[in-house]
C-alpha cells in the first residue's frame, strides 16, 4: 500500500517535471507559437500572458477531466474549444477590469488563448484520459513550463531591444539598443536560436 502511494507520488512529480523541461511546450513540442512570438517584446507582457494561460489551462483541464466520460469522439474538439472559450472570456474581462494597461497592450492575443494549441493538446492528450489529480498537476507543470519559456524569450528581447529589464538599466553605457529585436523579425530569429541551443544542451546531456 505504502509502495503504491510512493509510486503515485513519483508519477505526480514526473508529470509535473515533464512540462518544465523534457516536454516543455514551447521548446520541445513547438506548441503555442503565436503568443510566444507576439507578446514577448518585454518581460512584463510575457509574464501576464504566462499566468493567464496557467489559469485557463488549469480550469479547462479540471472541467475536461470531470466530463471525460460524457464526451462523444467526433464532438470532443468542439467541446474543448467551447470550454476554453468560456474561461478565456473570464480572463479577458478580469484583465480589462484590473489591468487595463496590460489588456490594451496584449490586445487580441488574450482572446487568442482560445486557439492556443497547448491547451487543446493537454485536454486531448492528458485531461480526457486521466483523473482529476493528474490533470491538475499536468496543467500546472505545462503552464509553468510555458511561462518560463515566455519569460526567457521576453527577457532576452527586452535586454537587447532597450538595454533595460523592468525599467531598470542593466546594460553598460556603450551598449547600442537594437530595435529590430522588438520587431517580428527579432522574435522569429531569437526563438530559432534558442531552439538550436536547447537541441545542443539536450544532446550534450544524453
Amino acid at each position: 500500500m505504502a509502495n503504491e502511494l510512493e509510486l503515485s507520488g513519483n508519477q505526480y512529480k514526473d508529470t509535473f517535471l515533464a512540462g518544465l523541461w523534457r516536454e516543455n511546450p514551447v521548446f520541445r513540442l513547438l506548441l503555442g507559437m503565436c503568443p510566444t512570438l507576439a507578446v514577448t517584446t518585454a518581460l512584463k507582457p510575457a509574464l501576464t500572458m504566462g499566468y493567464s494561460v496557467i489559469f485557463v489551462l488549469l480550469c479547462s483541464n479540471i472541467v475536461v477531466s470531470l466530463m471525460r466520460n460524457l464526451l462523444k469522439p467526433h464532438l470532443r474538439i468542439l467541446m474543448f474549444t467551447l470550454t476554453i472559450a468560456t474561461f478565456v472570456t473570464i480572463v479577458d474581462i478580469f484583465l480589462k477590469a484590473f489591468q487595463p494597461e496590460m489588456s490594451a497592450m496584449l490586445g487580441p492575443y488574450v482572446p487568442l488563448i482560445i486557439v492556443n494549441c497547448i491547451i487543446i493538446c493537454r485536454a486531448e492528450v492528458c485531461a480526457s484520459k486521466n483523473g482529476l489529480g493528474v490533470s491538475i498537476i499536468d496543467a500546472l507543470g505545462m503552464g509553468i513550463g510555458f511561462t518560463l519559456a515566455l519569460s526567457v524569450l521576453g527577457a532576452i528581447r527586452e535586454i537587447f531591444s532597450t538595454g533595460k529589464i523592468f525599467e531598470i538599466q542593466i546594460m553598460p553605457d556603450w551598449f547600442v539598443p537594437c530595435a529590430a529585436m522588438a520587431m517580428p523579425a527579432g522574435a522569429f530569429i531569437t526563438l530559432g536560436m534558442l531552439l538550436g541551443l536547447v537541441n545542443l544542451i539536450s544532446k550534450r546531456k544524453s
Partner: peptide
C-alpha cells in the same frame, strides 16, 4: 545546415529573415 539548427530552428530563422523583408 548546422546539426543543432536542423528542422524547426532553421525554419524559424528563415521566417525571421522573410519578415525582415516584409518590413
Amino acid at each position: 545546415v548546422p546539426e543543432n539548427l536542423q528542422g524547426a530552428p532553421i525554419t524559424l530563422i528563415t521566417a525571421g529573415l522573410l519578415s525582415l523583408a516584409f518590413m
